[in-house]
Design a protein around this nucleic acid. Structure first.
Lengths: 221, 221
DNA sequence: ACAAAAGTGTTGAGAGTACACCCATGC
DNA sequence: GCATGGGTGTACTCTCAACACTTTTGT
């Protein structure tokens, strides 16, 4: 029987690209190579529970939005022997500060750069599949909102879309596309001005309930 | 470690609904209950290879179009113990006759009826997920063509779309939607008349290469 | 006042729908 | 010829992109 593991692609919105959480492996094979957080699935737990457990162990984050991506089962993907990985992607909102335990151990890496790097196992391929899936789901799911804080502006939402698509969008066109669906969530507040220009209006995040929470303090970070 | 298996949702186009291939279980649990063809994944084979092997063992069909659906891992899904199933759906064109070994052992069941039945394990849920996925992919993939023979007509293609969507489409609207993409594959032949009305024009199937082939004769069929 | 960014109103092109009409076959 | 179903052409609608314009802030 192949060994069953999960891998988690933890993503958040950075300045110029999506950022993916990677950690430096301590064990062979691929010692000191960057890899996705992951681990074996235990008896009696679903793969989704395993993914949540891995996330909490590595980053102290609980209850993140998870989406099953694909199951990778090429017998050659792990040099130690046949292992099968159920990959999930997790979306971390820009609400809180990003957890980052030890700069020598883990890192937030720009996604497109990470895909081109030499990562452990087939993890570069898993990142590529995550990006493609996210791009495909962008316009008919709420995925983008899981990358935004509890209050956000249209320009912020546009920025997330641009990060996912990897191209820039025209502000007026984008605004029109989302105005109708968003107006239900308009607040009377405006965002603090960011130096120049008119401040944007704030919207309530429609998926705020599913947002991240830091686990009870006591863990590593 | 959970046990790793594959399940295959083998679908084809029937008269009034999609048909799914189910077989009557011989073993406990769920003895003599209808279930999806499936089986354990062997060391050294990918889940896709395992799915192909299961298909060939059960139906003598080789090289069918397969699509990974989802991985089901609820620890309670198998009463014997924790097992994880990677589900695939397979599309069987209406080219050849449908294989059907023993009417007491296996059957082609209308999909929507099957979803409502009491099937073994969580197989009804797997069927439901297959239908939803197929519906979502219908308009931006070639899935529909994998259900059609090597030569097909626009009304046949429309019929497949109607089966997947579960609703009827207007012939003129549908024709316009597919005409441009299809005209590259128009042949000079026309279909034999089906009793009344003008015969439809035949098109070459754009995905005919990926079609089914019966394995070397010698098995059960 | 001016620059910068947010937000709005108007126009025009393209996709998709409805409707009407023409074509090829069996009886 | 007529019924039946396949195929096409035309007008209408609705969405979406482009462009021009107004609003609100910081300097």
């Amino acid at each position: 029987m192949p060994l069953v593991t999960v891998e988690v692609v933890l993503l958040t919105a950075g300045e110029r690209d999506l950022l993916v959480y990677l950690r430096k492996r301590r064990e062979a094979p691929f010692e000191s190579v960057l890899s996705l957080p992951g681990g074996p699935v235990r008896i009696g737990e679903s793969t989704e529970e395993a993914a949540q457990r891995v996330l909490e162990t590595r980053t102290n984050l609980q209850g993140l939005y998870l989406q099953q991506l694909y199951t990778f089962s090429d017998p050659g993907r792990d040099p130690r022997g046949h292992s099968l990985s159920v990959a999930y992607y997790a979306l971390f909102p820009t609400t809180h500060q990003r957890p980052n335990a030890d700069p020598l151990e883990d890192a937030w890496v720009p996604l497109r750069a990470a895909i081109k790097r030499d990562l452990a196992f087939d993890h570069a391929g898993i990142l590529e599949a995550s990006l493609k899936r996210l791009q495909g789901r962008l316009n008919y799911t709420s995925d983008a909102y899981y990358l935004l804080p509890e209050r956000f502006t249209v320009p912020q939402l546009q920025h997330v879309h641009e990060l996912v698509l990897g191209s820039s969008l025209k502000p007026d066109v984008f605004t029109k596309r989302v105005r109708d669906t968003l107006k239900r969530h308009l607040t009377r507040e405006t965002a603090p001005s960011n130096g120049a220009g008119r401040p944007a209006r704030l919207y309530r995040n429609p998926v705020a309930s599913g947002h991240a929470s830091l686990a009870t303090v006591g863990g590593a970070p």
